[in-house]
């Protein structure tokens, strides 16, 4: 008995160490997370270092990148580097909130539908399919326009509430394949409740999958938020990368040749989302021994 108790935790630590071993040697994972972390740090540091209001009008409008204004200024003389720093913050916030809420709903619906099956599954599946078919952006358009809610967190909340269906579907399918395994049967026989089986037996066995789902939802939320911002339904207080693009478009940065206004925000969004996708492929290789090279 004692031997058994000792063996179990050591094995788990071993699995973790093995994952870590492959994680730090995986180029895709390290590069992807490296880029994301670098941009996150930039977003955290720049507003603190430079200080001041990112929307404050400056004295030198439309100036190209220089030592004083690293990314140049807008037609109103706003410092683009400062806006960029604040924009990164909003982008990460919207990704974390939207992705987090979507992952939570997707997990709840997916686990319950997949584990309970039967009528519950039927109803939840119908709900998932309905939300899946409705074009997310169109719904967000109506909600944002009418409610006029314009803060980053509320934007993230609504994105999370509408972008969970594919995650729920994927998690449901995974749960389906896990629920007939012996260890789940064993837990059921020993009298564990549904909630306990889901959180203790099923979720830990697909934790890598859940983490990867969250990463994809995170990236997706960022892209949806930037589209909303661009249409003019972004947060009115503060700055975001999508709003910077919208302002650049609205004040004809294109025709005036102010490339430093519209290149950085788009490049940052592309870098974050692309790096997340690449890191995800790396994670897949780390957790799935079949995919490992060498």
């Amino acid at each position: 008995m004692t031997a058994l108790q000792e063996v179990a935790p050591r094995e788990r630590a071993g699995v973790r160490r093995e994952a870590l071993y492959f994680a730090v040697r995986n180029g895709k994972l390290v590069t992807g997370f490296g880029i994301v972390l670098a941009l996150l740090l930039l977003g955290l540091i720049v507003p603190v270092l430079l200080g001041g209001n990112p929307n404050e009008y400056g004295t030198r409008p439309m100036s190209p990148p220089s030592a004083e204004h690293w990314f140049g200024t807008t037609t109103f003389g706003q410092d683009i580097f400062l806006q960029f720093g604040h924009g990164l913050r909003s982008t990460f916030a919207v990704g974390a909130i939207g992705g987090g809420i979507a992952a939570a709903i997707g997990m709840l619906v997916g686990f319950v539908a997949g584990y309970r099956g039967g009528l519950v599954d039927e109803i939840l599946n119908m709900l998932t399919n309905i939300v899946l078919v409705i074009p997310t952006l169109a719904v967000l358009l109506i909600i944002n326009a009418y409610l006029g809610i314009r803060s980053v967190s509320v934007q993230g909340l609504f994105i999370g509430l509408t972008s969970w269906p594919w995650a729920a579907r994927a998690i449901r399918a995974q749960t389906f394949s896990l629920r007939t395994r012996e260890f789940v049967d064993l837990a059921r026989m020993s009298g564990a409740g549904t909630w306990r089986i889901i959180t203790r037996e099923i979720a830990p066995n697909m934790s890598s999958y859940l983490f990867m789902t969250f990463i994809l939802l995170f990236g997706g939320s960022i892209l949806i938020a930037s589209s909303l911002d661009f249409i003019g339904l972004g947060p009115t207080e503060g700055v975001s990368l999508g709003l910077m693009l919208q302002n650049a478009n609205q004040w004809s940065a294109l025709q005036l040749g102010l490339w430093w206004w519209f290149v950085p925000p788009g490049a940052a969004i592309t870098a974050i989302v692309g790096a997340l996708y690449v890191a995800n492929v790396g994670l897949d290789e780390v957790f799935n021994p079949k995919l490992r090279e060498t």
């Binding site: 990236g219 892209l223 930037s226 661009f230 519209f262 788009g266 969004i269 592309t270 692309g274 996708y277």
Partner: peptide, 22 residues
């Protein structure tokens, strides 16, 4: 492929408009 799919639609549109248009 990863770079293209990570791009916000409007950003590639702006870049193309700038490069090929302006």
């Amino acid at each position: 492929g990863y770079v293209l799919t990570a791009m916000p639609y409007m950003w590639l549109a702006v870049l193309l408009a700038w490069a090929l248009g302006v």
